[in-house]
Amino acid sequence: MSTQVIPKPSLSHRSSRWFSRNLIRIYAALAFIYLFIPVAYTFAFSFNDSGKSNLVWQGFTLDNWKNPCGAPQVCQSVANSLQIGFISTLVATVLGTMIAFAISRHDFKGRRTTNLLIFLPMATPEVVLGASLLAMFLNLRVNPGFWTIVIAHVMFCISFVVVTVKARVASLDPRLEQVAMDLYANERDTFRYVTLPLVMPGIAGAALLAFSLSFDDFIITNFNSGIESTFPKFVYVSAARGIPAQANVIGSAMFFIALIIVIVGQVVSRQRKK
């Protein structure tokens, strides 16, 4: 700034200039506050000495964190969600990764159709996915329960896995595999020592995404769960009478665990690059 030439701006002028230059940062800060209000609220009310209703602040306590299973059914629903999440993630990641490799590494008849079939579940509202699957189960006289939830979750996670892994495979330098072959690695060794380690971060990311989609899903689950409970379903059902503070503990814990996993993942990938 050439303050010698221009007379010193007045304070209000300067502050308005600062404001307009940083407008977008201020805006972003407000957006982040907006994003985090419910998270902070959930976290704060996990310390509420609530008794039955967790609607009004009644005093600080650590009891809910010490005994997250204190409220009936909370832990059972979380355990169900974790089991469903793990199984669905495993199956969806394996099936999706295979498709991703086929699509990005092979030229085959029906590739466009395959792409379309991968895209469609992502473009279909959850309520339709849930309702159609339930309609089929009802027609087949299958009672919905644990395994129908797993089936549904694998179905909608596959597409997301394919898209994530495909992006990683596409960004892979094809010459690295040629180098491996040039250096006496046969097809199997090339895959094992070069392709797989390089695509692994993509697969891990896809698995993380699949797990969080599965763990957080409510609509499709609600259609295909019968009497089986999951954590989101538990929250929905108890929302009417006020959810117990223990649910806030679970939600907050999930938040911090996921945050740590993501941050550790970022740090590790940054160190690997070095």
């Binding site: 180098v179 072959m181 040039d182 020592y193 380690p197 390089l198």
Partner: peptide, 30 residues
């Protein structure tokens, strides 16, 4: 991988996930 011919590629194409030692040892190990 069966022929005793090796290539130095354009822009090198070193394996980013392996150390320098392991990059050089790659062919020997295979």
């Amino acid at each position: 991988y069966r022929r005793n011919v090796n290539t130095v590629f354009q822009n090198y194409a070193l394996f980013p996930h392996l150390s320098i030692f392991e990059n050089i040892a790659f062919g020997l190990r295979r």
